[in-house]
C-alpha cells in the first residue's frame, strides 16, 4: 500500500522531489518512516492533513489517502 504525500515549504526543500512510503497503516508509522529517511523532518514544525483535513491524532490510512505536511510560514 502506498499513500500520496504532498509536502510544502521547507519539507519539500528537504526532500527535493517526490517522496513515497510503502506499507504504512497509519499516520504515525508514515511520520516515523519519513523521519527515518529524512532526519531533518524532526527539526521542522508542521501539521499533518489526511485527505485535506488537518488531524491531531494518529489516523488510519488506506491506499486512496493523500497526506499533506504543511509547515507554518511567517513571511509577509
Amino acid at each position: 500500500m502506498s499513500v500520496k504525500i504532498i509536502l510544502f515549504g521547507k519539507l519539500a526543500e528537504i526532500v527535493g522531489g517526490s517522496v513515497s512510503v510503502d506499507n504504512v497503516a497509519d499516520t504515525d508509522s508514515l511520520i516515523n518512516a519519513l523521519h527515518n529517511d529524512y532526519p531533518e523532518f524532526a527539526k521542522t514544525k508542521y501539521v499533518i492533513a489526511v485527505d485535506k483535513q488537518v488531524i491531531k491524532e494518529n489516523t488510519v490510512l488506506n491506499n486512496k489517502s493523500t497526506v499533506a505536511l504543511l509547515p507554518p510560514f511567517s513571511g509577509g
Binding site: 515549504g9 521547507k10 527539526k43 521542522t44 514544525k45 501539521v47 488537518v54 509547515p71 507554518p72 510560514f73 511567517s74 513571511g75 509577509g76
Partner: peptide, 25 residues
C-alpha cells in the same frame, strides 16, 4: 487551531534568510 504554538528558532525559515519571489506577496 492550525498551529497551536509558535515554532522554535531554526524550525522555519524567514524571508530575509530564505528569500521570496517578488510577485508572490
Amino acid at each position: 487551531d492550525l498551529f497551536p504554538d509558535p515554532p522554535k528558532e531554526g524550525e522555519v525559515l524567514n524571508c530575509a534568510e530564505a528569500g521570496v519571489l517578488g510577485v508572490l506577496p
